[in-house]
Structure formats: structure tokens, C-alpha cells
Nucleic acid binder design. Sequence first.
DNA 1: CCCAATATTCACGTTTTTCTGAAACTACGG
DNA 2: CCGTAGTTTCAGAAAAACGTGAATATTGGG
Lengths: 191, 191
Amino acid sequence: MISGKGRAVEREPEQGQDPRAVADFVERFAAELVVAGMGRMPSRIFSCLMAEESGVLTSAELSERLQISPAAVSGGMRYLIQVGLVAKEREPGSRRDRYRVLNDVWFESLTRRDELLLRWIRVLKEGEATVGAGTAAGKRLEESAAFFEFMIDELHGMLGRWREHRAMRGREEAGGQEEAGGQPEARRQQA
Amino acid sequence: MISGKGRAVEREPEQGQDPRAVADFVERFAAELVVAGMGRMPSRIFSCLMAEESGVLTSAELSERLQISPAAVSGGMRYLIQVGLVAKEREPGSRRDRYRVLNDVWFESLTRRDELLLRWIRVLKEGEATVGAGTAAGKRLEESAAFFEFMIDELHGMLGRWREHRAMRGREEAGGQEEAGGQPEARRQQA
DNA sequence: CCCAATATTCACGTTTTTCTGAAACTACGG
DNA sequence: CCGTAGTTTCAGAAAAACGTGAATATTGGG
């Protein structure tokens, strides 16, 4: 038996799976994002885009799939765009926007972490001065600052290694499997 | 001119700085933590402990310094202890608890990140199956999972390097400066 | 075994956040 | 330059989170 959810794999081996199950996944993943601190709507919207074949949806589509008002989509998008997880594009010849989940989402979002860390470092060093550089508390704060400085460096190194790693994975996959079936549907990105 | 905040450095080069300025720092750093997603009370409590010379405070002390009810301290502590940022100890011969900020707080808290990442990976892989492993969406989800797997490895590597880095910093400091003045006040930890 | 000192839990009032419907705005097509 | 499809903003209702005071539980000392 293959998957076993009632209706067999009729002829859509690549697109129209059970929308029920997909919606389930969307909610489940969104919940994880919420735990990690992202708002509810941004999480659901983002998750929905991730699960979308093309990675692109209009406001109306999101509104329908998630059962939320256009206003909620707009609000959630403001956040997602601001933090660089999603790009807004306008399809020429139409007046509605399309929202695209960016390709290297995680990668990019980690980069943005720097600013936060730098702010922390500044505050901690001021704290060290306030509390007295020679005191135990001062040392504690100083060590925290040092840790975050270290982390910034490490983050950069890591992202470089990910680029490599990812490139290798890509090559392996292309070599080991046939992959040139259809068109290059997943054009790399555009922003 | 040295620091210039009115009263000169009278004779407490190592402990009783302006409580005003310290409280300021506590609030400022707490605000950063809030931005990063931590609750308000946990942030303030944690920040307060970080700025405390001994790194240890009782519930009553926290209650007074932060102007919050004992209930708020208790609630905040439940969180801080759960995520491993603070340890609760009971001083023998007394019936009140003392809360100690752990030494390698950041280090430890990063370690705990693993669980979160593993959960994400699981969810993403289920999503890949749901959506179809061969589809573009499937690949997108799979690549996200791969990124997080990569991150877990990197995290471990990084923590190892931090241990080294930190040990080196410690040695440098001990070598370049006199450090053996008083007692070993900052006994390494106890949990 | 009871008393007193702390800590925790719970129900409640308050503040914040969240989401919606409706109005205002924008930009493309004609 | 107008009309309209679509998006954003805004005020307000609904829901959630927060913090407190009071009650309850726990624990060490006598």
C-alpha cells in the first residue's frame, strides 16, 4: 500500500494533494513559529506560503485559505516583509499584488540577527561600566558581551559554510537523480 | 574629569554604585530581552540578577527592587527555571529560597535550542511528505529541514569553540593582570 | 505536632493585543 | 480623467496576557 488516505493517487503525483492534510501542516508549522515568538497571523501566512507549490499567493487567496480578513493579511504582510521573509510583487497587467516567500529565508533572517546582537553588546558594556568593571557583576556582563561578539563571528562563518553545504547538496541531487524532467520551475529567486 | 555624575568615586570602587543607574541598566537590558520575545517579568528578573554582584537574590529582594508582587516573582521564576537560566536554591538554616543566575547562561540556553530545532525538522519533513516529496513545495520544505539539521551541527561545533575561546580569554586575563587579590568570589557554579 | 515564614496558586480586574468591518486610499485600464 | 479592483488604515469589539491580592500549600524551627 502506498499512502492510504482513501482516494488513490489518481493522476496528480505532483500537485493536488489532500488540501485537508496540507492545511493541517500549515497550522502545525505555524504553531511552532508562534512558540518561537512570531505573531499568529504572520506565522500562518508564512507557513501557508511555504506549503504552496509556487511559493506565491495573492492576498485574496491567503484570505480564503486561512479564513482571515484582507486586513489581517495586510497586517501580517507588513511584518513579514519588514523582516525580509516575504517579498511583495505586482503582476504587470493586473492590479493585485502577489506575495512570494523568499528562497533563502532562514539564511537571510539569521543575517538580520546581527543588529539585535550588536545592540545587546552595547547595552551590556554600558552595564559593565555602570556596575563597575572590576566587580563580579561587571565580569558577568562583560562575559555575556564577549559571548555575543563571538556569536556574531560564528554566525558569519556558519552562513558561509551553509552556502557551501547547500551548493554541494544541490550538485549531489542533480547528479544522483534525474531532475531535468520539466521546466526549471523553481527559478532561484528574483529579489 | 572622570565619570561626572555628581558624587565622585568615594571609596566603593567595587560594590555600591549608583543604584539609580543600575536600575536603569536593568530596565534597558530587560527591554532588549522583551524585544527578543521573553516575557516582561522574566526579563526584568533575569536582568536584575545579572546586574547583582553576587548573582543571587531572594524573592523578597527582587520583589522590592522591581516593585512587583511576590506572585509575579514566582511566576517569572517558573519560566526562568524551566528554560534553565536561573537555579533555585534553599539556604540551609533558613526557609527562603535564593535564586541564582547560572554562569554559562547563554551557552546553556543555546544548547536547549536543539529540542526546538528538532521539532521543527520533524514537522517540516512531515510537511514534505504531505505536500509531495517531488514537488517544488516539497523541496522547499525539505531544504528548510536540511538547513536546521545543518544548524544543529553548527551549534555544537560553535559551543565547543566557545569553550576554547573562553578558556583562552580567562588565561590571558589571569596572565596579564593581577587577579588573585581577594578570595575566589566567583566560584564557578554549583548546579 | 504546631507555629511562623515563604512560596505558590487562583480568581479577578486591568491593560494589551488581535482581528474584523468599513471607510479611505492607490493605481491601473479605459 | 473617471471608474473600479485591490490594498491599506482606522476605530472598535473580542480575546488574551498580565499582574495583583488573597487564599492555600509547604517547610523548617521549636
